[in-house]
Design a protein around this nucleic acid. Structure first.
Lengths: 208, 208
DNA sequence: TTGTGTGAACTGATTCACAGCA
DNA sequence: TGCTGTGAATCAGTTCACACAA
C-alpha cells in the first residue's frame, strides 16, 4: 500500500460526500467549496478540508474543489474502480430487502449468490440470484471470488454461517444479526445493530 | 438529569452487554467477571470495567459483577423501563423488515403506526399496524405520544417526511435512507447508511 | 489470592486559527 | 479578497498499571 492511511472516520464519510457530488454534477455544478458542502451535510467546513487534504492537493485556493476530480479520487480510495462480489446468507425479510437494495442501488457491489435454510427457497431464483442451502456455502463460494458476505440469518445460525463464509474465502462480513461474532483477527467485521442505535437515540433524547 | 453523562460509545455497547447478560442468566449464571465478558465480546477487559464503573460500584472485588443488578441498571440507563412508541414511514422492502424486527424482537420498542405513499397500501393493516398516507403523518401522530420515527422512504421523499415527523412531535429519527437530513438542533438523528459501512469494510480489507 | 475501580498515559478525531496561494 | 491547507490545541475514547477490597 503506497497510499497513506486515512482516518477511518474520514473513510466512512466518503460515500456520503460521493453521493452529494454526483447529485451536484447532475445539476451542472463543476466546483464546490468546503463551506458549501459543509452546509449541505451540516458539518464543520474545517473537517471537510481536513478530509480532502488527506488526498493530496485537490483544491484551488480562492475557488474550491473540482467535483469530477474529487469523485475520481474518492472512487479510487474506496476501491470502487472494481466490482465487489457479495454473498448473502438469510433471505428472510431483511435479507431480501438488502439483496434488492445492494443489487439495484449500490453500484460497484453485487450480490452473486444467496443462502437460506428454508428448503422451499433453496433452488429458487430471487431477483436474478440463485438460492442455495446453508450447507452449500463453502462449495458454492469455492470456485468464485467473493470477498464480502452479508450475514442476515437467525441468531442461532449466525456463528456457524460466519465460519462457513470464511471457509468459502470471505474476508469481510457485514453482520446484521444481533450476535457478536468473534472471528479470527484477519476477518473484518462490521456490525450493524439496530438495538445499539435505538439505545443511543433514546439516550441522546433523554440527556439533551 | 441527576445521572452523570456516559460516553456515547459506552451507551452503544450497553445493548450488546444486555443481550449477553440475558443469555447467561437463562443458562443459570449469577455473576460475571470483566475477563469473561471480554472474552465473549472480544474486547479489552479494562474497557468493560471502565464502562461498568460509570454506573457506580456494582462489582465485588475478587468475585465479579451481579448479573441481575447489571441488567436492572442498564435497563434503567437506556430508559427501557418504559415503552417507546415508534412511527415508521415507508413500508417497502426495508420498512417491512424493520417493522417486523422491531415489533417482534425489540422489547421496549413498538411501532404504533406506519405511513406509505402507495395508495394500495394505505388503509391496510400490516402485522397489526395500520398504514396511513404520507400526508396524514402530522394529524395521525398529533393525538398520541410518538417520540421516535424510522425513515425508510425513497430518497426524494426523505426530507419532506422527516419534517412531517417533526411536525407530529417526533424527537428522534432513525434514518435508513442515504440522504443526509439537516434538521433543527433539537432533533436527534441516527443515520444508518449501508454504503458507509460497505466502504469502510472494503477499505479495511485493502489496508490490513 | 482474585478481580474491581481508577488515575494517568496514550491514541485518534475534531476544531480552530491563520499562513499562503490564486 | 476568498478559500485552501495545515500545525497546534482540544476533546473523546481506549488502554494500561496498580492500589485496594473481598
Amino acid at each position: 500500500m503506497t497510499r497513506p492511511k486515512f482516518p477511518i472516520e474520514t473513510i466512512r464519510r466518503l460515500p456520503l460526500y460521493l453521493r452529494c457530488f454526483n447529485r451536484l454534477i447532475v445539476l451542472g455544478k463543476d466546483t464546490l467549496t468546503s463551506k458549501e458542502l459543509a452546509e449541505f451535510l451540516e458539518v464543520n467546513p474545517g473537517q471537510i478540508r481536513k478530509d480532502f487534504s488527506y488526498f493530496g492537493d485537490f483544491g484551488t485556493r480562492g475557488v474550491g474543489y473540482d467535483l469530477r476530480e474529487l469523485v475520481k479520487e474518492i472512487r479510487s480510495i474506496l476501491r470502487m474502480d472494481r466490482d465487489w462480489n457479495i454473498a448473502i446468507a438469510g433471505i428472510g425479510n431483511i435479507g431480501n430487502a438488502l439483496l434488492d437494495h445492494i443489487n439495484f442501488n449500490q453500484p460497484g457491489f453485487r450480490i452473486v449468490c444467496a443462502f437460506d435454510q428454508d428448503p422451499s427457497l433453496v433452488g429458487t431464483n430471487v431477483r436474478g440470484v440463485n438460492v442455495h442451502s446453508l450447507e452449500e456455502i463453502e462449495e458454492t463460494l469455492d470456485g468464485q471470488t467473493v470477498p464480502l458476505g452479508v450475514l442476515a440469518v437467525s441468531d442461532v445460525d449466525a456463528r456457524e454461517v460466519a465460519e462457513k463464509f470464511v471457509g468459502g474465502g470471505v474476508k469481510g462480513i457485514i453482520n446484521i444479526t444481533p450476535i457478536c461474532l468473534n472471528m479470527s483477527e484477519e476477518i473484518e467485521i462490521v456490525h450493524m445493530d439496530l438495538s445499539s442505535e435505538l439505545g443511543r437515540l433514546v439516550y441522546q433524547l433523554e440527556n439533551d
